[in-house]
Write a protein that binds this DNA or RNA. Structure first.
Lengths: 127, 127
DNA sequence: CTAAACTTTGACATCAATGTCAATGTCAAG
DNA sequence: CTTGACATTGACATTGATGTCAAAGTTTAG
């Protein structure tokens, strides 16, 4: 599919898809005419890239994380101790973020319940 | 305590503490000399404000969330249906973020294990 | 008292993410 | 072939979070 369709299906502005590509978060083939060509899997890839950036990761870090995710699929991934230490640091940062967001998420859900608007809450997550 | 101490104890630049105050995320008393005066509880408040902002919430939204958290402590909080609907929307956005971050967190942890750097992983969260 | 360290406010700079526009090329429909 | 919708690149503007600096008052150590 072309960039316009991917944009519609993901809700991500085409401008951002190109930007993410420029930052190495998202790859794309090129058709003979120079148009970017995406496949089904790119819908999720783009969505994840966007999700990480919206979760406060810099595009630089998001790229590292996405690369790691891909590597996880490989049989025996390897990495330098240095990279491992960097990842370990980021891992605790991710845990901090998760703890913080979870707390707020629960507070918002509780608030909606307390204010008799619990019917608006239906997603996942603890009550 | 004064802003310098709060800054050191939270690791948040004084500049940001003032900024968060300006944006309504953090309140402060004023001593006779005009200096901001914080108490113990502000250490956590400031930390949470920063955490939310680093988790990708705008200061505008972070303020709303923090306000909601405080209201949760009240006996019978009330709110307009309109606000409730906005919060419900943000709630799903928070859940999306959580899902996205959790996925990456787990991928990074798994990667560290696979690369025989599992010893660097020690925080919370699923393996 | 004095100098160093801290605080206040306010202005200005920076950086990353994002929006917007322009000039140009491609493609599909009529 | 022509028109309209879509793509490409590149430039420029905006916005929010931060850094940095300056001028001026305050506090504290010596």
């Amino acid at each position: 599919m072309k960039i316009g369709e991917l944009s519609q299906r993901t809700g991500i502005p085409a401008r951002m898809l190109r930007y993410y590509e420029e930052q190495g978060l998202l790859a794309s083939e090129r058709s003979a005419n120079g148009y970017r060509a995406y496949d089904e899997a790119d819908v999720e890839r783009a969505t994840r890239a966007r999700g990480l950036v919206q979760a406060g990761l810099s595009t630089r870090l998001a790229k590292v994380v996405l690369d790691v995710e891909r590597q996880c699929a490989l049989a025996q991934p390897t990495c330098s101790r240095e990279l491992a230490e960097m990842l370990a640091t980021e891992l605790t940062a991710l845990d901090d973020r998760l703890a913080c967001l979870t707390k707020s998420r629960d507070a918002v859900a509780r608030y909606l319940s307390l204010t008799r608007n619990g019917d608006l809450v239906r997603g996942p997550g603890a009550a």
